[in-house]
C-alpha cells in the first residue's frame, strides 16, 4: 500500500487555477522529485499535502487516514510529516539545539533530557553537533537548512516534504544540503522533493514528476525522463534547467 496518496487535488487563488486535478502516490522509502517551471503549483501541492494550504477539492491519504477529512486531527498528522522550507524558517530566537528540541518538547511531549539527547543526535546526523548553541543568524544558509532538516527528522516523520531546499542558497553551500538529502534517501526515508537540482534528481530520484500548468504532464524513472521523454515539453524543460543549474551535485 502506498504511504501517501494524493487524489484529484484542486486549488485556485482567485482566478488562477494553481492545481487542476493532481494525483500522486508515494511508496514507503521512495524519493519522488517534483520538477517544472515556476508557478506550476509544485510548492502549492506540497503545502496542500499537510494542509498548510487548504486544497479546494480532492483527497490526501496518509496510509489509511484521510488528511483532508474535516475530522482529522491536523496537528497530529502534521507531526508525522516533515516539512523543509526554501528559506529555512528556523525559529530566530532559539539556538540550533532549541530549534530541533521545540517540537519534541511541545508536540511529542518528551522530557527535557530525552528531548535534548534526541535533538543532539539529529544535529550530529546533519554534521552540526558543534553548532548546537549557535543562533540561526550565526549560521550560514547551508547550516541553517541542515538544522531545519534535523528539526524535521527529530519528529521521526513518516515522510519529509522538501520545498526547493537549495534555491535560497549560494552555489557553494548547495552541496552540503544535497549531501544530507542523498544520505537520507539512502537510509530509506520517504521524500518528496521540489528542486531544480537535476544532478540530485538523476542520481537519487526513484521517479521524476514533471508538472506544468497545475497538472502532471509526465512522470517516470530518471533515465527515461532524461533520455526519451514522451512529452516534448519535458525534454525541453530538462535541457534548459540542466544548462541553467548544471548537473553536478
Amino acid at each position: 500500500m502506498a504511504l501517501l496518496r494524493v487524489e484529484e487535488l484542486y486549488k485556485r487563488y482567485g482566478r488562477e487555477e494553481v492545481l487542476r486535478g493532481v494525483s500522486l502516490s508515494v511508496a514507503r522509502g521512495e524519493t519522488k522529485v517534483l520538477i517544472g517551471p515556476s508557478g506550476t503549483g509544485k510548492s502549492t501541492l506540497l503545502r496542500c499535502i499537510n494542509r498548510l494550504t487548504e486544497p479546494d477539492r480532492g483527497q490526501v491519504w496518509l496510509e489509511d487516514a484521510e488528511i483532508t477529512s474535516p475530522n482529522t486531527d491536523l496537528n497530529r498528522v502534521r507531526a508525522k510529516i516533515g516539512f523543509v522550507f526554501q528559506d529555512f524558517n528556523l525559529f530566530t530566537h532559539l539556538t540550533a539545539l532549541d530549534n530541533v528540541r521545540l517540537g519534541l518538547l511541545r508536540v511529542r511531549g518528551l522530557g527535557r533530557k530525552e528531548a535534548t539527547e534526541r535533538a543532539m543526535s539529529e544535529l550530529a546526523r546533519v554534521g552540526l553537533a558543534e553548532k548546537a548553541n549557535s543562533y540561526p543568524a550565526q549560521l550560514s544558509g547551508g547550516q541553517q537548512q541542515r538544522v531545519s532538516i534535523a528539526r524535521a527528522l527529530a519528529m521521526d516523520p513518516q515522510l519529509i516534504l522538501f520545498d526547493e531546499p537549495t534555491s535560497a542558497l549560494d552555489p557553494e553551500l548547495i552541496g552540503e544540503v544535497l549531501g544530507v538529502m542523498v544520505q537520507l534517501a539512502k537510509e530509506g526515508m520517504t521524500m518528496i522533493v521540489v528542486t531544480h537540482e537535476m544532478g540530485f534528481a538523476r542520481s537519487v530520484a526513484d521517479e521524476i514528476v514533471f508538472m506544468e500548468h497545475g497538472v502532471i504532464a509526465e512522470k517516470g524513472p530518471p533515465e527515461q525522463m532524461f533520455r526519451s521523454p514522451k512529452v516534448p515539453r519535458t525534454g525541453e524543460f530538462l535541457r534548459k534547467i540542466s544548462e541553467l543549474y548544471g548537473e553536478s551535485k
Partner: peptide, 9 residues
Amino acid sequence: LAARALGMS
C-alpha cells in the same frame, strides 16, 4: 508556518 508544520497548535 514552520511551527504549524511541526504539529503545534
